[in-house]
Design a protein around this nucleic acid. Structure first.
Length: 732
RNA sequence: GCGCCCUUAGCUCAGUUGGUAGAGCAGCUCAUUUACACUGAGAAGGUCGGGGGUUCAAGUCCCUCAGGGCGCACCA
């Protein structure tokens, strides 16, 4: 054998290795090959894949394009799924998109207004829905292409949409079952009203922002015995009571007394009630009770059977027939009432207090609590078919050592805390895009069913459902439920193995899936919840349109390769923590792809004519030790993969391949390969091939493209049938 | 108010049963028809936010303080 100093270019290795690795040219081609091979579909996997491993892709909203956060999620999930597949699991990863009701409709309405100056009612329900569908379809197509560009090994034959026919049947079926069990009811109750979006929203869709308010202390009238304090004087025209703590010595003697009085141009009938909810220390220790426009007051009113007087309408305007406030916007009405109090000499004190403002997540509108007739999910009703447990009970019990575990663990407490504070879930929305409520009315009659009543004269409820209602069914609506035959064929995949998603939707989505699955199926929807954090920019700022700091993951993939994007996202961030990602980090992993590429070039050109001999045993002492070291590292990595510590494994493989294999082992091989000892040379050639082969297999879940491309040229022994790397076994 | 997280090299972060401090990037010195410049070698750089405690041993466990971030509930 000649000393290893050959002129460039070297002969007899595949020509592609003589150039730097080209992800842009390679990745789309490899993805096409995977699609042709069909192994994304578990039904097409070879015999050895038996034990199911199933994941649902958190469906991206059809509101636009994917961002770095979605890419992070896809990278994590694809790495988990590919690892499981190589481990011989029967892997099913279901892709889909989310209609995201309010978000999508708001987006299209914005465009409509900007481009045509029209509002939703100018178009009407049918035409607006047509526009939204067109927008959603377009958005869907680009999202699908983006998912593909990132290398996701999802089963496209099972792709779902939260608003398609099958999911609609699932929604109607779930609604009907809950309605029949009394878990869904229609009620006149105080709800969160978004005047900007003109719809109700759930408690979870409220975003509190810090601000300053003014706390006004005053009396309703000169001869009223108690002073009250409030930050919303304008609502006081809707007061029906003053609540004090039952043991408060200052006010005890007034409890149950009633007063008729004139306030800001309207008549009030105020009853004094004693209620434990009132804190004697705050303000004057007395609360003016406005049942129609405060959640707490509503509850006080319920306890004391007080009347409800709405004074604010859906446009956040005052409705009370008083010259002081009539037809004014709430903010103006507040000023008017304060002015009135001053002129009457009733205002005792004004002080600035910190106050948080409730705004709607999607529209930014200031949320106004209003009483309305809406549909709710009762979370406190005992369910006969579930041992008289309530939905709250089912949700709480699902997260336990033998049920669902959440990673990182600390989120289990966050989840339980949320359940403890959970109120009935308002599910009806006054928007057009979404699942129509499967309820029909004829006069005073109400009819709920999966299909419309056949006889004449019924009118379907105009409202649609909270988008999370359909998302809650996702783990099983994507597996065919409620179609018995289809679901039976997929029964093995439920509960799904792991749910990987962002911690920001633990309440919206994770909790709702647990609710739906435990109630409808009597089983948990998944065994493990892996929560990832927010992807921020290099400076740690939240990625947002206004900052213009969004990096398009697909642009990055085009520039540096999806493999590099995936590594850049995964490495350096444990579950539950936010991460900072910039272009430089991704670039670094592109260099790594090329490093591996050149390692391959060196190994192939140094081992010409040799193929991998799995039963090789004539190892030199050094080589035997090196093999053992790598095996130890891989065993550790396997353990960490099973514990979902992907960031550690990725880093470990990177460090080993670059700094052990390339920097040390390859360099040390040069003198050995040009030495006199045939035995040492034979051993070293086998070593180089063995290590390369193991590294490529181990790295595949993280960097699927470059590894699959290298794999094609790894010289397995001629007797071995080479399968695509995607279904090869992970080493160790 | 209740609760959670973060504070480790200039920057970004790893570091899970407690056992002599790690990586990437940046910077510094050197090498250069080399498998790879999308490179290599080397050196430098940290009292692991402050204080206290437990322990033979603490970045790691406990208490406390400070700064930053977040979630929930909102005192009207």
């Amino acid at each position: 054998m000649e000393p290893k100093k050959q002129p460039y270019p070297e002969p007899n290795i595949p020509a592609k290795f003589l150039k730097p690795y080209d992800p842009t040219g390679t990745e789309p081609r490899i993805y096409e090959e995977w699609l042709d091979q069909g192994y994304f579909n578990p039904d097409k996997l070879p015999e050895r894949h038996k034990e199911p491993f199933s994941v649902v892709l958190p469906p991206p909203n059809v509101t636009g394009i994917l961002h770095m956060g979605s890419a992070f999620m896809i990278a994590l999930e694809d790495t988990m799924v590919r690892y499981a597949r190589m481990r011989g699991k029967k892997t099913l990863w279901i892709p889909g998109t989310d209609h995201a009701a309010i978000a999508t409709q708001a987006k299209v309405e914005n465009i409509l207004y900007k481009e045509e100056g029209k509002r939703r009612h100018d178009l009407g329900r049918e035409e607006l829905l047509r526009r939204i569908d067109a927008f959603a379809n377009q958005s869907h197509d680009s999202i699908v292409n983006q998912i593909k560009a990132l290398g996701a090994s999802v089963d496209w034959s099972r792709e779902a949409f939260t608003l398609d026919e099958k999911r609609n049947l699932a929604v109607r079926t779930a609604f009907k079952r809950m309605y029949d069990d009394g878990l869904i009811y229609r009620g006149y109750r105080i709800v969160n009203w978004d005047p900007k979006g003109q719809t109700t929203i759930s408690d979870d869709e409220i975003v509190h922002t810090e601000g300053t308010g003014t706390l006004y202390t005053f009396k309703y009238s000169k001869d009223f015995p108690i002073s009250i304090a409030t930050t919303r004087p304008e609502t006081k025209v809707g007061d029906v009571a003053v609540a004090v703590h039952p043991d408060d010595a200052r006010y005890k003697q007034f409890i149950d007394k009633k007063y008729d009085l004139d306030f800001a141009g309207t008549k009030l009938h105020i009853q004094i009630v004693g209620d434990e909810a009132v804190s004697p220390e705050f303000g004057t220790g007395a609360v003016g009770v406005t049942p129609a426009h405060s959640h707490i007051d509503w509850e006080i009113a319920e306890r004391h059977k007080l009347p409800v007087i709405p004074v604010i309408n859906e446009y956040a305007k005052m409705t009370v027939d008083s010259p002081v406030v009539k037809d004014k916007k709430v903010a103006d009405a507040r000023a008017s009432v304060v002015e009135w109090l001053k002129t009457q000499g009733l205002l005792e004190k004004e002080e600035k207090v910190p106050q948080s403002l409730a705004t709607a997540e999607r529209t930014g509108g200031i949320v106004e609590p209003l009483p309305k007739l809406q549909w709710f999910v009762n979370v406190n009703k005992p369910i006969a078919s579930r041992d008289n447990k309530t939905l709250k009970d089912l949700m709480r019990e699902a997260v336990s050592p033998d049920g669902i575990s959440i990673l990182p663990e600390r989120f289990e407490r966050v989840y339980k805390n949320w359940i403890d504070n959970l109120r009935d879930w308002c599910i009806s929305r006054q928007i057009w895009y979404g699942h129509r409520i499967p309820v029909w009315y004829k006069g005073a009659e109400i009819y709920c069913d999966i299909v419309a009543p056949s006889d004449e004269g019924w009118k379907q409820d105009e409202d649609t459902l909270d988008t999370w209602f359909s998302s809650g069914l996702w783990t099983f609506s994507t597996l065919g439920w409620p179609n018995e035959k289809e679901f039976a064929a997929h029964r093995m995949y439920h509960p799904t193995t792991v749910l990987e998603t962002g911690y920001d939707i633990i309440f919206f989505w994770v909790a709702r899936m647990i609710l739906m699955s435990t109630y409808l199926l009597g089983e948990i929807p998944f065994k493990t919840v892996y929560l990832h954090g927010l992807v921020r920019d290099e400076k740690g700022q939240k990625i947002s349109k206004s900052l213009g700091n969004n990096i398009d993951p697909v642009d990055m993939a085009k520039k540096y390769g999806a493999d590099a994007v995936r590594m850049g996202l995964i490495i350096g961030t444990g579950p539950g923590n936010d991460s900072k990602v910039g272009e430089n980090k991704i670039k670094g992993y592109k260099n790594f792809s090329n490093k591996l590429w050149n390692i391959t070039r060196f190994v192939l050109s140094s081992t010409e004519g040799v193929s991998i001999d799995r039963s090789f045993s004539a190892w030199s002492a050094d080589d035997k030790k090196l093999i053992e070291e790598l095996d130890a590292l891989l065993r550790e990595a396997a353990k960490e993969m099973d514990e979902y510590k992907l960031h550690l494994v990725g880093e470990k493989l990177y460090a080993y391949i670059w700094h052990d294999f390339a920097d040390i082992i390859l360099e040390a091989s040069k003198p050995i390969l040009s030495s006199e000892s045939d035995a040492d040379k034979a051993s070293r050639k086998q070593l180089l091939l063995h290590i390369l082969e193991r590294c490529v297999r181990a790295l595949h879940p993280f960097m699927p493209f470059v590894t699959e491309e290298i794999w094609k040229d790894i010289p397995l022994s001629p007797a071995t049938l080479k399968k695509p790397l995607i279904i090869e076994a992970w080493p160790i």
